[in-house]
Simulated scan of single mutants.
Amino acid sequence: MAEQTSPHRAADAPVRPGPAPRVPEHEAPVGDLGRRLALRRTQLGLSRREAAARAGMAASYLRHLEEHPAATPGAGAMIRLAGALETTVAELTGGTADQPPGPGEAVRGARFTALQPEECRALLATHGVGRLAVSTEDGPVVVPVNYSIVDGAVVFRTAAHATPARAVGQRVALEVDRIDEAFSRGWSVLVRGDAEAVTDSAAVRRLNGRAHSTPWAGGRRSQWVRIVPVAITGRRISV
Protein backbone atom coordinates (compact mmCIF):
# COMPACT_ATOMS: atom_id res chain seq x y z
CA MET A 1 0.00 0.00 0.00
CA ALA A 2 1.32 3.46 -0.88
CA GLU A 3 2.32 5.71 1.99
CA GLN A 4 -0.13 8.61 2.34
CA THR A 5 2.05 11.22 4.02
CA SER A 6 3.01 14.10 1.76
CA PRO A 7 6.76 13.91 1.14
CA HIS A 8 7.18 17.67 1.25
CA ARG A 9 5.22 18.26 4.48
CA ALA A 10 6.94 15.32 6.20
CA ALA A 11 10.48 16.08 5.13
CA ASP A 12 11.70 16.90 8.62
CA ALA A 13 9.47 14.61 10.65
CA PRO A 14 11.46 11.88 12.41
CA VAL A 15 10.27 8.28 12.27
CA ARG A 16 11.07 5.27 14.38
CA PRO A 17 13.20 2.61 12.74
CA GLY A 18 11.23 -0.49 11.81
CA PRO A 19 12.20 -3.94 10.60
CA ALA A 20 14.66 -4.19 7.73
CA PRO A 21 12.72 -5.67 4.80
CA ARG A 22 14.35 -6.08 1.41
CA VAL A 23 13.35 -3.41 -1.10
CA PRO A 24 11.11 -5.11 -3.71
CA GLU A 25 12.32 -4.98 -7.30
CA HIS A 26 9.20 -3.06 -8.36
CA GLU A 27 10.30 -0.24 -6.06
CA ALA A 28 13.65 0.15 -7.79
CA PRO A 29 14.61 3.85 -8.04
CA VAL A 30 14.74 5.49 -11.45
CA GLY A 31 16.72 8.70 -10.92
CA ASP A 32 20.49 9.13 -10.50
CA LEU A 33 20.18 10.51 -6.97
CA GLY A 34 17.56 7.92 -6.11
CA ARG A 35 19.71 5.07 -7.39
CA ARG A 36 22.72 6.28 -5.42
CA LEU A 37 20.65 6.69 -2.26
CA ALA A 38 19.16 3.21 -2.54
CA LEU A 39 22.51 1.61 -3.42
CA ARG A 40 24.33 3.17 -0.48
CA ARG A 41 21.47 2.31 1.85
CA THR A 42 21.59 -1.31 0.69
CA GLN A 43 25.37 -1.43 1.13
CA LEU A 44 24.90 -0.43 4.77
CA GLY A 45 22.11 -2.98 5.25
CA LEU A 46 19.56 -0.31 6.17
CA SER A 47 15.85 -0.37 5.51
CA ARG A 48 14.29 2.79 4.16
CA ARG A 49 12.81 3.56 7.59
CA GLU A 50 16.14 3.06 9.33
CA ALA A 51 17.97 5.34 6.90
CA ALA A 52 15.25 7.98 7.17
CA ALA A 53 15.38 7.86 10.96
CA ARG A 54 19.14 8.40 10.86
CA ALA A 55 18.62 11.44 8.64
CA GLY A 56 15.75 12.82 10.74
CA MET A 57 13.19 12.68 7.95
CA ALA A 58 10.10 10.69 7.05
CA ALA A 59 10.46 7.36 5.31
CA SER A 60 7.88 8.56 2.77
CA TYR A 61 10.15 11.46 1.84
CA LEU A 62 13.15 9.17 1.36
CA ARG A 63 10.99 6.94 -0.80
CA HIS A 64 10.01 10.00 -2.83
CA LEU A 65 13.68 10.85 -3.38
CA GLU A 66 14.54 7.29 -4.39
CA GLU A 67 11.69 6.92 -6.85
CA HIS A 68 11.35 10.36 -8.49
CA PRO A 69 14.20 11.50 -10.76
CA ALA A 70 13.05 15.13 -10.67
CA ALA A 71 13.23 15.35 -6.86
CA THR A 72 15.48 18.18 -5.66
CA PRO A 73 16.10 18.02 -1.90
CA GLY A 74 17.53 21.06 -0.19
CA ALA A 75 21.12 21.37 0.97
CA GLY A 76 20.19 20.58 4.58
CA ALA A 77 18.43 17.36 3.61
CA MET A 78 21.37 16.28 1.44
CA ILE A 79 23.84 16.90 4.26
CA ARG A 80 21.71 14.87 6.67
CA LEU A 81 21.37 12.04 4.15
CA ALA A 82 25.11 11.98 3.51
CA GLY A 83 25.78 11.77 7.24
CA ALA A 84 23.14 9.08 7.75
CA LEU A 85 24.55 7.00 4.90
CA GLU A 86 28.18 7.55 5.96
CA THR A 87 29.21 9.18 2.70
CA THR A 88 29.50 12.62 1.13
CA VAL A 89 27.11 14.86 -0.76
CA ALA A 90 29.44 14.67 -3.77
CA GLU A 91 29.20 10.87 -3.78
CA LEU A 92 25.41 10.92 -3.56
CA THR A 93 25.05 13.42 -6.39
CA GLY A 94 27.56 11.71 -8.67
CA GLY A 95 30.08 14.53 -8.44
CA THR A 96 32.96 12.07 -8.05
CA ALA A 97 31.85 9.64 -10.78
CA ASP A 98 34.69 10.58 -13.14
CA GLN A 99 37.38 10.81 -10.48
CA PRO A 100 39.65 8.01 -9.29
CA PRO A 101 38.78 6.80 -5.79
CA GLY A 102 40.75 7.72 -2.70
CA PRO A 103 41.76 11.40 -3.10
CA GLY A 104 41.18 12.15 0.59
CA GLU A 105 43.85 12.16 3.26
CA ALA A 106 44.32 9.26 5.64
CA VAL A 107 42.69 9.65 9.05
CA ARG A 108 44.67 9.46 12.27
CA GLY A 109 44.67 6.16 14.07
CA ALA A 110 43.88 4.05 11.01
CA ARG A 111 44.64 0.33 11.28
CA PHE A 112 45.83 -1.98 8.50
CA THR A 113 44.81 -5.57 9.13
CA ALA A 114 44.77 -8.83 7.21
CA LEU A 115 41.41 -10.41 6.44
CA GLN A 116 40.73 -14.03 7.28
CA PRO A 117 39.96 -16.35 4.34
CA GLU A 118 36.29 -16.62 5.30
CA GLU A 119 36.02 -12.81 5.39
CA CYS A 120 37.57 -12.60 1.93
CA ARG A 121 35.13 -15.13 0.52
CA ALA A 122 32.18 -13.32 2.08
CA LEU A 123 33.26 -10.01 0.53
CA LEU A 124 33.84 -11.64 -2.86
CA ALA A 125 30.44 -13.28 -2.77
CA THR A 126 28.67 -9.90 -2.76
CA HIS A 127 29.46 -9.79 -6.51
CA GLY A 128 30.42 -6.76 -8.52
CA VAL A 129 33.27 -5.45 -10.62
CA GLY A 130 36.79 -6.80 -10.21
CA ARG A 131 40.10 -5.90 -11.81
CA LEU A 132 41.55 -8.78 -13.80
CA ALA A 133 45.34 -8.90 -14.29
CA VAL A 134 46.33 -10.75 -17.48
CA SER A 135 49.69 -11.34 -19.11
CA THR A 136 49.89 -10.44 -22.81
CA GLU A 137 52.62 -10.33 -25.41
CA ASP A 138 52.92 -6.58 -24.72
CA GLY A 139 53.15 -7.01 -20.95
CA PRO A 140 50.67 -7.26 -18.07
CA VAL A 141 47.24 -5.68 -18.56
CA VAL A 142 44.57 -4.93 -15.95
CA VAL A 143 40.94 -4.69 -17.08
CA PRO A 144 37.63 -4.49 -15.17
CA VAL A 145 35.17 -7.39 -15.44
CA ASN A 146 31.70 -8.01 -14.03
CA TYR A 147 32.11 -11.20 -12.04
CA SER A 148 30.05 -13.63 -10.00
CA ILE A 149 30.92 -16.42 -7.59
CA VAL A 150 29.53 -19.83 -8.51
CA ASP A 151 30.52 -22.96 -6.56
CA GLY A 152 33.49 -21.15 -5.03
CA ALA A 153 34.97 -20.08 -8.39
CA VAL A 154 35.11 -16.62 -9.95
CA VAL A 155 33.22 -16.55 -13.26
CA PHE A 156 32.75 -13.82 -15.83
CA ARG A 157 31.48 -13.47 -19.37
CA THR A 158 33.48 -11.91 -22.18
CA ALA A 159 33.87 -11.82 -25.96
CA ALA A 160 36.09 -14.46 -27.56
CA HIS A 161 38.68 -11.93 -28.79
CA ALA A 162 38.48 -9.42 -25.91
CA THR A 163 41.36 -8.89 -23.50
CA PRO A 164 39.73 -10.80 -20.59
CA ALA A 165 39.53 -13.91 -22.82
CA ARG A 166 43.34 -13.97 -22.87
CA ALA A 167 43.19 -15.14 -19.27
CA VAL A 168 42.30 -18.65 -20.44
CA GLY A 169 45.15 -21.06 -19.81
CA GLN A 170 47.00 -18.65 -17.53
CA ARG A 171 47.42 -18.12 -13.83
CA VAL A 172 45.81 -14.75 -13.26
CA ALA A 173 44.82 -12.40 -10.45
CA LEU A 174 41.50 -10.70 -9.73
CA GLU A 175 41.34 -7.78 -7.29
CA VAL A 176 38.11 -6.52 -5.73
CA ASP A 177 37.86 -3.57 -3.36
CA ARG A 178 35.57 -1.11 -1.65
CA ILE A 179 36.67 2.42 -0.71
CA ASP A 180 34.73 4.60 1.73
CA GLU A 181 35.64 8.15 0.74
CA ALA A 182 33.88 9.79 3.68
CA PHE A 183 35.88 7.92 6.31
CA SER A 184 39.12 7.11 4.41
CA ARG A 185 38.73 3.41 4.96
CA GLY A 186 38.14 0.33 2.85
CA TRP A 187 39.13 -3.21 2.00
CA SER A 188 40.62 -5.18 -0.86
CA VAL A 189 40.64 -8.88 -1.73
CA LEU A 190 43.05 -10.58 -4.14
CA VAL A 191 42.26 -13.90 -5.82
CA ARG A 192 44.96 -15.82 -7.66
CA GLY A 193 44.10 -18.87 -9.69
CA ASP A 194 44.03 -20.70 -12.99
CA ALA A 195 41.63 -19.43 -15.65
CA GLU A 196 39.81 -21.87 -17.90
CA ALA A 197 37.18 -21.56 -20.61
CA VAL A 198 33.81 -23.08 -19.83
CA THR A 199 32.73 -24.93 -22.97
CA ASP A 200 30.51 -27.76 -21.73
CA SER A 201 26.95 -26.89 -22.77
CA ALA A 202 25.41 -28.04 -19.48
CA ALA A 203 27.94 -25.99 -17.50
CA VAL A 204 27.25 -22.94 -19.67
CA ARG A 205 23.50 -23.25 -19.08
CA ARG A 206 24.15 -23.56 -15.36
CA LEU A 207 26.25 -20.39 -15.32
CA ASN A 208 23.67 -18.53 -17.38
CA GLY A 209 21.09 -19.43 -14.75
CA ARG A 210 23.13 -18.86 -11.61
CA ALA A 211 25.55 -16.04 -12.33
CA HIS A 212 24.59 -12.69 -10.86
CA SER A 213 26.42 -10.14 -13.00
CA THR A 214 25.87 -9.13 -16.62
CA PRO A 215 28.72 -7.42 -18.52
CA TRP A 216 28.25 -3.65 -18.44
CA ALA A 217 30.04 -3.36 -21.77
CA GLY A 218 27.06 -4.90 -23.56
CA GLY A 219 27.22 -6.60 -26.93
CA ARG A 220 27.56 -10.32 -27.55
CA ARG A 221 29.71 -11.75 -24.77
CA SER A 222 29.04 -15.46 -24.69
CA GLN A 223 32.45 -16.80 -23.62
CA TRP A 224 32.42 -17.89 -19.99
CA VAL A 225 35.72 -17.91 -18.10
CA ARG A 226 36.17 -19.55 -14.72
CA ILE A 227 38.99 -18.81 -12.27
CA VAL A 228 39.57 -21.60 -9.78
CA PRO A 229 41.27 -19.94 -6.77
CA VAL A 230 44.56 -21.25 -5.45
CA ALA A 231 45.03 -18.35 -3.01
CA ILE A 232 42.71 -15.69 -1.57
CA THR A 233 44.07 -12.86 0.58
CA GLY A 234 42.72 -9.54 1.75
CA ARG A 235 43.46 -6.38 3.68
CA ARG A 236 41.31 -3.82 5.48
CA ILE A 237 41.99 -0.22 6.51
CA SER A 238 39.75 0.82 9.40
CA VAL A 239 39.63 3.49 12.08
Results as ranks from 00 to 15, higher is better:
residue 230 V to S: 14
residue 126 T to A: 15
residue 206 R to T: 13
residue 169 G to N: 14
residue 5 T to M: 09
residue 95 G to D: 00
residue 236 R to F: 09
residue 77 A to F: 03
residue 64 H to Q: 12
residue 134 V to P: 03
residue 172 V to A: 14
residue 137 E to T: 12
residue 44 L to K: 13
residue 113 T to F: 03
residue 112 F to V: 15
residue 62 L to N: 05
residue 144 P to I: 01
residue 39 L to Y: 09
residue 226 R to P: 02
residue 119 E to G: 02
residue 125 A to V: 03
residue 67 E to V: 05
residue 38 A to M: 06
residue 68 H to E: 11
residue 56 G to C: 01
residue 232 I to V: 14
residue 106 A to E: 08
residue 168 V to D: 01
residue 61 Y to V: 09
residue 30 V to E: 14
residue 148 S to G: 11
residue 1 M to W: 12
residue 157 R to E: 13
residue 205 R to Y: 01
residue 42 T to G: 12
residue 34 G to W: 05
residue 19 P to Q: 10
residue 157 R to A: 15
residue 232 I to Y: 07
residue 32 D to K: 13
residue 191 V to Y: 02
residue 10 A to T: 13
residue 123 L to P: 04
residue 14 P to D: 00
residue 229 P to A: 10
residue 72 T to N: 10
residue 216 W to I: 01
residue 214 T to W: 13
residue 227 I to L: 04
residue 235 R to A: 04
residue 37 L to D: 03
residue 200 D to A: 10
residue 223 Q to E: 09
residue 168 V to M: 02
residue 228 V to G: 08
residue 142 V to F: 03
residue 138 D to C: 01
residue 137 E to H: 11
residue 154 V to Q: 00
residue 152 G to K: 02
residue 124 L to N: 06
residue 150 V to G: 04
residue 152 G to R: 00
residue 134 V to G: 10
residue 196 E to D: 13
residue 8 H to I: 06
residue 12 D to Q: 04
residue 238 S to N: 05
residue 199 T to K: 07
residue 8 H to G: 02
residue 9 R to M: 12
residue 196 E to P: 01
residue 232 I to M: 07
residue 180 D to A: 11
residue 31 G to A: 02
residue 121 R to M: 12
residue 6 S to T: 03
residue 7 P to G: 09
residue 203 A to D: 15
residue 99 Q to E: 03
residue 17 P to H: 07
residue 54 R to W: 08
residue 206 R to W: 15
residue 32 D to R: 15
residue 30 V to H: 08
residue 25 E to Y: 10
residue 201 S to L: 12
residue 132 L to Q: 00
residue 201 S to Y: 05
residue 231 A to W: 09
residue 40 R to S: 11
residue 24 P to T: 06
residue 13 A to P: 00
residue 43 Q to H: 06
residue 218 G to N: 09
residue 76 G to M: 04
residue 149 I to S: 11
residue 91 E to S: 14
residue 168 V to H: 00
residue 33 L to E: 00
residue 155 V to K: 04
residue 193 G to W: 01
residue 52 A to C: 01
residue 96 T to Y: 14
residue 97 A to S: 15
residue 59 A to E: 12
residue 160 A to S: 11
residue 135 S to K: 05
residue 43 Q to A: 06
residue 189 V to R: 10
residue 213 S to F: 12
residue 208 N to R: 11
residue 54 R to H: 10
residue 129 V to F: 00
residue 22 R to C: 05
residue 102 G to D: 06
residue 175 E to S: 06
residue 140 P to C: 08
residue 139 G to I: 06
residue 201 S to P: 06
residue 45 G to F: 05
residue 72 T to Y: 07
